[in-house]
Each structure stands twice: as structure tokens, then as C-alpha cells.
């Protein structure tokens, strides 16, 4: 059963300009029609390069940014249609872990007051002592000692700060936690600790995660299902192992081929897919397939004009590419193969 369902979610930010009166001169299409569903107790990993809209998507689910159109269904209720107060009361069920562990903690609050705040605003716990017991329990759960209570965020290390951030979400006993780049600000050694902690908490409390990250290794380590985002849209979605074993969308292929393989023989032999150019501006996204400006397998006409739907190509494997099957069968030649063969790319 899916606890969280997104249907054609769009978040467009207006671009305003004007000297005296603000005029809307365009929109940034940060999230442009994403549909996905997250199964109860599972982890959905969302990857994509910087600026592809993955963070905005995470925030839109929690209504931290305004949703332009579409639906976010949490246990059947459409969050997009709730009033501010109704949404606020549901927030204890849907929590978030932020990317910057220090920036997301108020420097003037000690750990106890950081964790108590959520309990207070949701009226959980009868007394201060009651809440303190709960807070100490939660701190232990995330691997922090109870003497952390009276200390302040700047006195902790990066990993410990992220544990505080996780504890803050966890203390409300949520069903879903959205982790926005939960480990990208941490040392690699600490990353593993925090990821293991997240997995452990998931099995202990039956949590559902939506993990947003740009690090493919992190996402693979933690996710059951992975969605790949490009320029505000989902281009491919599959089970974690399936996606890594058999990427179908050209963009996913390129992303995965950028991950080095720790074996020099394999590393030298494999085909590297290079995608030229930069991410197009999300304020004027390309027509047709969003990726056609950089795609090595781009075909004339159809790719430029028709936006591909996310369609199920194999069981549990959805791809938004017109030619996914042909590329997979090797019927289409990629331009990067030409590059590898020695033809210089056009300047």
C-alpha cells in the first residue's frame, strides 16, 4: 500500500520584475508534472543533478513551498487542498531531515528545547518531565547521550548535529520522513553512520522515507525504489538493483557511467557516456523531451516535439523515453560512441 502519492505535481515559481509594480515575466518550472508513489515502510530515493527540482519536490510534499497544481495524497488525503491549520496539525506525521545540519538548527536553542518544540506545538506529553523522558529516549535512539540536553548545536560535530535533526523529526513519531540530502554535508565516514542509523530507525519504527540525494552510492545503499529526475520531471523509476543493473533512460545511463568502477580493467573497457552542455534553464525548458538538447541518442522530430510519458517498459520499471526499447536493444547508435571512436565532437 502506498502511503504517499504524488499526482502530476507542479511547482512553478514566478519571476518578477519591474521598477514600481511587480510584473510576472515568466515562471521557473522547478517541478513540472511529477507522479510517483511511495510504499509504506519502504524508501524511495530521488536522484538528479543540482537544480533539477528534487529539493523543491521534497518541500512541496510538506507544503513548505506553494504547490502550483497537482495532488499530494498522504494516506488518501490530498495535502494540496488542506487549509494552513489542517496542514499544520498533520505535520507531526510527515517530518523532514534537512541538508545543512547546523543551519537547520536554531543557534539559540539547546537540544532539549529543539526537540521539545515539536512536542509542545502538537500537544504531545502532559508535562515538561513527561516530554523530557520522551526526548531522552529519542536521543538514545539516535545515538546521543542524555547530557546533550542542555548543550547547543554549535557544540556538536556535523554527524551529531544531523542526529539531532533526525531526533527532532523522530520525536513526533511520524509515518513519513523526507530526507533532503541527509548526508551530503557530512564526512564520508560519518555518512555511513547516519545512513545506517536511518535504516535502523526504519526497521524499528516502520518508517517510510523519501530520500533526496545527488550521490548515487548513497541512494543505492538506502533505497528500495529509485526515481531519477531531470529538469523538473521524472525520467526513470525502477527498483534500486534493477536501475543500476539495467538503466534505460539515456540520462540515467550517463549518470551511472560517471560513477567510477574500482577495477582498472573494467573501468578502461567500459563505455563512458558523455553528455555535452549544461542543464537548460528551468524558466524556459526545451520543447518535447526535456533531455533532447543533450541526449546522445536523440532522434529527429519526435524527441524535439513530443514530451515522452513515463511508461512502464518492464515490470516495475518506468521510463520517459520514446526509444527506450530501441536503445536497450542496441538498434540506435549513440553519438558518444562516435566520440569514443575518435570523431571529435562539434565545438
Amino acid at each position: 500500500m502506498s502511503v504517499l502519492e504524488l499526482e502530476d505535481l507542479k511547482v512553478h515559481f514566478p519571476i518578477r520584475s519591474g521598477v514600481v509594480f511587480d510584473r510576472t515575466v515568466g515562471h521557473v518550472h522547478a517541478v513540472d508534472g511529477v507522479s510517483l508513489s511511495v510504499e509504506t515502510g519502504s524508501t524511495y530515493g530521488l536522484v538528479g543533478e543540482s537544480g533539477c527540482g528534487k529539493t523543491t519536490l521534497g518541500r512541496a510534499v510538506l507544503r513548505l513551498v506553494d504547490i502550483t497544481s497537482g495532488h499530494v495524497r498522504f494516506e488518501g488525503t490530498d495535502l494540496a487542498g488542506l487549509s494552513g491549520e489542517e496542514m499544520r496539525r498533520r505535520r507531526s506525521r510527515l517530518q523532514m531531515v534537512f541538508q545543512d545540519p547546523l543551519g537547520s538548527l536554531d543557534p539559540r536553542q539547546n537540544v532539549e528545547s529543539i526537540l521539545a518544540e515539536g512536542l509542545e506545538v502538537h500537544g504531545i506529553g502532559q508535562s515538561r518531565a513527561d516530554r523530557r523522558t520522551k526526548i531522552v529516549d529519542t536521543l538514545e535512539r539516535v545515538g546521543l547521550a542524555s547530557n546533550a540536553l542542555s548543550r547547543y548545536p554549535h557544540e556538536f560535530s556535523g554527524g551529531q548535529r544531523q542526529r539531532i535533526g533526525i531526533a527532532r523529526a523522530l520525536v513526533l513519531e511520524p509515518d513519513v520522513i523526507i530526507c533532503d540530502e541527509p548526508v551530503s554535508a557530512l564526512d564520508v565516514s560519518v555518512q555511513a553512520q547516519v545512513l545506517n542509523l536511518l535504516e535502523e530507525l526504519q526497521s524499528a519504527f516502520g518508517l517510510t522515507y523519501l530520500v533526496i540525494a545527488h550521490d548515487l552510492a548513497v541512494v543505492r545503499h538506502i533505497s528500495d525504489v529509485i526515481g531519477v529526475m531531470y529538469l523538473g520531471g521524472l525520467v526513470e523509476e525502477a527498483g534500486a538493483d534493477e536501475l543500476y543493473a539495467d538503466p534505460m533512460h539515456p540520462y540515467t545511463k550517463a549518470l551511472l557511467s560517471a560513477v567510477p568502477i574500482p577495477d582498472p580493467v573494467v573501468e578502461d573497457a567500459r563505455e563512458q557516456i558523455l553528455i555535452p552542455g549544461d542543464l537548460p534553464s528551468p524558466s524556459s525548458p526545451p520543447s518535447g523531451c526535456r533531455f533532447h538538447t543533450r541526449c546522445p541518442w536523440r532522434q529527429p522530430e519526435r524527441c524535439d516535439t513530443e514530451r515522452p510519458e513515463l511508461r512502464e517498459v518492464a515490470p516495475g520499471h518506468r521510463v520517459a523515453c520514446h526509444y527506450a526499447e530501441e536503445i536497450r536493444a542496441g538498434e540506435l547508435r549513440s553519438r558518444s560512441a562516435d566520440v569514443a571512436a575518435g570523431t571529435p565532437p562539434p565545438a
Binding site: 518541500r59 510538506l62 513548505l64 499544520r88 496539525r89 505535520r91 507531526s92 517530518q95 523532514m96 534537512f98 545543512d100 543551519g103 537547520s104 538548527l105 536554531d106 543557534p107 518544540e117 515539536g118 506545538v121 502538537h122 535533526g165 527532532r168 513526533l172
Partner: peptide
């Protein structure tokens, strides 16, 4: 970010 976090907290 901590204001955003407080909003997310409810």
C-alpha cells in the same frame, strides 16, 4: 533553514 525546519515541525 531553521525557520523552514520550524515550519515543517508544525
Amino acid at each position: 533553514d531553521y525557520v523552514l525546519a520550524a515550519t515543517a515541525l508544525g
